[in-house]
Design a protein around this nucleic acid. Structure first.
Length: 262
DNA sequence: AAGAATGTTATGTA
DNA sequence: CTACATAACATTCT
């Protein structure tokens, strides 16, 4: 489920619900990265999101690094939380709220130095104010690699996943197979602005919505799964009705309109 | 109910 | 050095 918007949403929610509190941190199903349990009853100072990575800063300079990978999932509860569902790797309990974490790729205690190293290798995050847009432009404008792959490269742009890649290229009418170096500055800027807008909407509604609610005729919260997207997993192009083409690109399934995207 | 999936990293090859 | 392919890993949803 996770693209950058969800990670930033979690950071926002968890800062609101848990910041400054003394929390109980346990690992109910044991086997996964049990070092997290060393954090039993610590004070949470803040939660940061960089791309798809989360960092929980605790008193005593300990950082809990979480990456959801493809399957990882947070489940929120009221305190006290119910019996764990599935393989809960991490359970955090506060006075009023609690959450479980299932199936993450990473859930590990790291040092502030390691945190910097991880953040440093990530590219510009459209949801962060400190995003280095020039660096993203520099990487893309010099690359012979294809824009459909570059968008998934977290060291170029951090936080974009398979859905936003398809949707952003569709909106900008860019063919995924175009080499990065063939984009001009205006096209890059427009693509970037699309990503910023899309991800912000994602954080706001906690789901990916790239279709225009006015066109659909429903408020964003009421839109069906298929109504929310323009191109990803669609049968035909909403602009010209041409059949959407799908193929593997960068080891993930790409969707694009062969007529509109050039 | 099998298969796909909103991901990353490590490793090998050209 | 860059680019690309592949495998490994985790679990939920349809």
């Amino acid at each position: 489920m996770p693209e950058g918007h969800m990670i930033h949403r979690v950071a926002r929610d968890h800062n609101r619900l848990y910041r400054g509190q003394q929390l109980s941190v346990t690992s109910p199903q044991g086997r996964f990265q049990a070092s997290a349990t060393k954090l039993d009853a610590k004070t949470l100072e803040r939660v940061d999101a960089y791309g798809k990575h989360l960092f929980y800063w605790w008193a005593g300079d300990q950082v809990l690094h979480i990456h959801l990978g493809l399957y990882g999932k947070f489940r929120n509860h009221r305190s006290p939380p119910p019996t764990p569902r599935g393989a809960v790797r991490l359970r955090v309990i506060g006075d009023t709220h609690a959450f479980d974490l299932n199936g993450p790729t990473a859930c590990e205690l790291i040092t502030p130095t390691q945190q910097i190293a991880i953040a440093d290798r990530l590219g510009a995050d459209p949801l962060r104010k400190d995003a280095d847009i020039e660096q993203a432009w520099s990487r893309i404008s010099r690359s012979r690699s294809v824009i459909g792959k570059l968008l998934l490269d977290q060291s170029v742009i951090a936080g974009v996943g398979n859905v936003y890649r398809a949707e952003a290229l569709f909106v900008n009418q860019l063919a995924p197979e175009r080499a990065g170096q063939t984009l001009d500055r205006n096209q890059f800027d427009s693509l970037w602005q699309t990503l910023v807008a899309m991800l912000r909407i994602g954080v706001k509604y906690n789901r990916i919505i790239t279709a225009d609610p006015d066109e659909v005729g429903k408020p964003p919260s009421r839109m069906n799964r298929s109504e929310r997207l323009l191109c990803y997993k669609k049968e035909c192009c909403p602009r010209c009705k041409t059949a959407i083409k799908s193929w593997e690109l960068g080891a993930r399934k790409m969707y694009a309109c062969p007529a509109c995207q050039v």
